[in-house]
Design a protein around this nucleic acid. Structure first.
Lengths: 192, 192, 192, 192
DNA sequence: CATGAATGAGTTTTCATTCAT
DNA sequence: AATGAATGAAAACTCATTCAT
């Protein structure tokens, strides 16, 4: 009934917002355009979301939650595998998530560094998981000791490098290979 | 004479713009604030720069040119060294440049991904040098073959990981060590 | 039957409107808030009242009518008393009415002067009665002649002074005393 | 020079705001209309006043200050006169002020009671002066004792009654007579 | 009849840009 | 050439009102 329709509208607005934010960038996305793309009026957008900031926040939050859940599942599922399998599972999960929300990828990467001082909650979420993973790797002596504090960032750097490459050359590399490549570079480096 | 003064003012405006763009973000930086920080009126800013976009463009361009020169010098100076020395020189140059233009770092990292479609000229510049370097490394068989197209990004990912770490923990690592760490991870990976 | 229910709802909406108009002010009162306070949906408010303006108008009108009736009763009941008794009865009636509709008091006092060009019907109603009373007082030579046209306003000014005092110091003065004080000042002035 | 023009513009905006607020009421006055009446663009209004609320606040504040000064002068000048003279001076000052700002009179009277809980600073200002005067009158035994706390309100009620009468019948009574009438009713009451 | 989601005209506010002094 | 007040297009946001369920 009503409830259904309302939720449907909310989802339509979220989807439209995701697309417009991604296309126009975090600052050039206009509420009217989001409304138009969602097929509703501005007022309706404001009936569903307090204001522009809240719309963006809820959008990021829902994607963050989704990814966090996926990562937790992956970490839990692979808890007893050898470390390299865990790592591959983790990275693959990230790639799959971005595959599902490709338009939004740009927002997260942008939000990642845009306000460097305070990384977005979404990023902290990923980072926390990466740290968990790194701790496991260190415990299992699968990762070496030097500059341990850099490891999560290095891992994330490798992942982003592959993500960006894929954004600029869409589909050049199948998902599974992307994960392998990122993990490979992270673990073994580029030396011949 | 007059010429001197004019150049001095232009530089003051650029410096102010660099700081304000970095502090407020690419979109929230206001012309008035830049003018105020430079100690001139808005009108004067417009006498020196066509418009807001031109101000940002010239700012990026001047920093880009500076960095490009430094990188070219470093590449040239180390052209006959073993590859690892070249790599360390390259990375160190990047770190030193950002040490000199720390506020600018945020602009670049932001601008890097903000409009993913068009990476900033500065980024392309770095990327082009990184590709040159990678080609040299491949030629010298210092870098391995698989997924060659990812190598510049991976290198840049390692560099950014260290840069971000330094931004969030300023001074935790001396410049020279930063370069070593980034190069080490890029070449050898994180495996124990 | 149905009729009962409908009237009940209408009254609930009026009461809610009275309270919200009083609390938020004539312009900041929102239809949603009135509906919520009445325990119905906005739609229902519109089923009972043409639009916002009509709601306010009918509210004012119903309160006005009620007060007018009370005043007429008081005037009729005291028609043959000495003038001072009539006056006290009149003033007391006003105080009692506002005691019953304290939230409404603010609306009326506000509406009184908000749009000075058109005093509210309620105010005209009171004023008309005050004029009747003043005419009686003059006829009985209980009131003096000078500036006769100011008398209703002066009377009303004394009444409002006491009402406002009571609004700001609720209950400081019992209703009966309020009437006495207002009448006393109106008739005798403040001179020692 | 510049400074002159700027102040001139500020004054023009204030004057326009005074008129529009008075004509349309506190809530229906639109910034665009104020700007248009002042012969400037909206932006200019915002260059001179933080926002809508600040414009209104500064307007009220400047009028309040003006009146407060006038009242203080009047009170000081008549400090050694007999009480009735002081009273007449006070009331006359109020009438003259409103004569000068007739359009704005409505705003002050409106603001007076609109938010009854918290009388405007302007009103508190007048009230404080009225209290001073009342204290003097009591000290000199020119005012009687009963319900002393009501006296300032009663005085103000008489003044407003005359003001409102004048607003509705403009010019029916010369300023000097208005003061006399108000004082007369306040001191002697309406009894024959 | 009641409901409450959708509507969209109407306002406030921002800020890059211009130009008279 | 510097100044900074003025400009006004562009956005965000509000809320009375409608109407399909």
């Amino acid at each position: 009934m009503r409830e259904r329709l309302r939720e449907e509208t909310g989802r339509a607005i979220s989807a439209a917002a995701e697309q417009v934010f991604a296309e126009k960038g975090l600052h050039l996305a206009r509420m009217e355009e989001i409304a138009a793309l969602a097929g509703v009026s501005v007022g309706t957008v404001y009936n569903h979301f307090e204001d522009r900031q809240a719309l963006l926040a809820e959008l990021l939050e829902s994607r963050r939650k989704e990814l966090a859940q996926r990562l937790d599942q992956a970490l839990a599922a692979s808890a007893h595998e050898p470390f390299e399998g865990q790592l591959r599972g983790f990275v693959m999960t990230v790639f799959i998530h971005f595959e599902d929300h490709r338009p939004f990828l740009s927002i997260m990467l942008e939000g990642d560094q845009a306000r460097l001082a305070q990384p977005s909650p979404a990023m902290r979420e990923i980072r926390a998981r990466a740290e968990t993973l790194v701790r496991r790797g260190l415990a299992k002596k699968a990762l070496r000791q030097g500059h341990v504090e850099l490891l999560p960032g290095i891992l994330w750097g490798a992942v982003k490098a592959v993500l960006l490459h894929d954004l600029r050359n869409p589909g050049a590399l199948p998902v599974a290979e992307r994960a392998s490549a990122a993990v490979d570079f992270f673990l073994n480096g580029a030396r011949a």
